Simulated scan of single mutants.
Amino acid sequence: MEHVLTGGNVAAAVVRVGDTVRKPVTPATPAVEALLNHLDGFPGAPRHLGRDDQGRQVLEYIPGTVGDLPETNHELHRVGRLIRDLHDALQDFSPPPDARWHVVIPPDREDLVCHHDLAPWNLVRAHNRWVFIDWDGAGPGSRLWDLAYAAQSFVSMTRTSDPHTDAPRLRALADGYGLDDHQRAELPEHIGAHTRGMYDLLRTSKEEPWTRLYAEGHADHWGPAADYVERHLDVWRTALR
């Protein structure tokens, strides 16, 4: 029996069948499957299990909670460590020569294939592992670009936030990742640029689901969030020293 999985803004017709998830195939699916095959055995990503008789992508279903913001600095440190382990596991991944990706916000550079949507809504907290799901937007990027989006979303840097609360949370995430001094100096600007890039995507895209999300008011979150991050760059720099 199929059970529709709800909660995503982008992927359509995603269902659970027993201990598996079935997703429609897109032009990027073969490249994503190669990436997940490379990560087979890494506990922070779901296993790719092939295609079903309808041609859908089949993935391991991870039972657990999704969408919870880290409540403590210890949890943020764990998220940072998980992202570092993920990036290290991807460092030697060689994409297929005909790989097609679906990266919607241009990254700062392309030296690593990244997830590009590391956020609470894509983190399953299972009883024995934390797993990043929804790899449809994976593609070339960089460690800091991927981490910048995670920082904004997991720290929850929004227009209603308090920078004096967010600063130690950002530090915990960066410490968990193990950023060096140069990366710490660069991260705040990357957070601002990536957050602004999300707002610009919603504001200018003529494609679905972005036009629908814009009509639903999502840009009203991302624009002020970008303003907030950019307004307090000195606070983030000080926290990361």
Rank of each mutant, 00 (worst) to 15 (best):
E2W: 13
E2A: 12
V4T: 05
L5D: 10
L5Q: 09
G8A: 06
V10E: 13
A11K: 10
A12M: 10
A12D: 08
A13H: 09
V14Q: 03
R16Q: 09
V17F: 11
T26Y: 11
A28N: 00
T29K: 04
P30N: 10
P30I: 07
A31D: 04
A34H: 00
L35S: 02
D40N: 14
G44I: 13
H48T: 08
L49F: 01
R51D: 03
D52S: 06
Q54S: 11
G55P: 09
G55F: 11
Q57L: 14
E60H: 04
I62D: 08
I62H: 08
T65V: 13
G67Y: 04
L69T: 06
L69G: 02
L69R: 05
E71Y: 12
N73Q: 15
E75M: 10
L76V: 02
R78P: 11
R78C: 12
V79A: 03
V79S: 00
G80P: 10
R81S: 13
R81T: 05
L82I: 08
L86G: 00
A89Y: 03
A89F: 04
A89R: 06
Q91S: 14
Q91T: 14
D92H: 10
D92W: 09
P95Y: 05
P95Q: 10
P96V: 05
P97S: 11
P97H: 11
D98M: 07
W101N: 08
H102L: 14
I105E: 14
P106K: 08
C114K: 07
H116G: 09
D117I: 09
D117W: 00
P120Q: 00
W121P: 01
W121N: 07
L123R: 08
L123M: 11
V124H: 03
V124W: 02
V124E: 05
R125E: 13
N128G: 09
N128M: 10
W130C: 12
F132W: 12
F132D: 13
I133N: 00
D134K: 13
D136L: 09
A138L: 08
A138W: 07
G139H: 07
S142I: 05
R143A: 15
W145A: 15
W145M: 12
W145Q: 13
L147S: 00
A148S: 10
A148W: 02
A150R: 12
A150C: 11
S153P: 10
S153C: 15
S156Y: 15
T160R: 11
P163L: 05
H164T: 15
T165C: 09
D166F: 02
P168W: 06
P168L: 08
L170M: 13
L173N: 05
D175Y: 06
Y177F: 01
Y177G: 06
L179N: 00
D181V: 10
Q183G: 11
L187G: 06
P188M: 06
E189T: 05
A193L: 12
A193I: 05
T195A: 12
T195N: 06
L201I: 02
L201C: 04
L201F: 03
L202R: 02
R203D: 01
R203W: 01
P209N: 04
Y214L: 15
A215V: 01
H221C: 06
H221N: 07
W222E: 10
P224D: 03
A226F: 09
V229F: 03
E230F: 07
R231W: 06
L233P: 03
D234I: 07
W236G: 00
R237T: 04
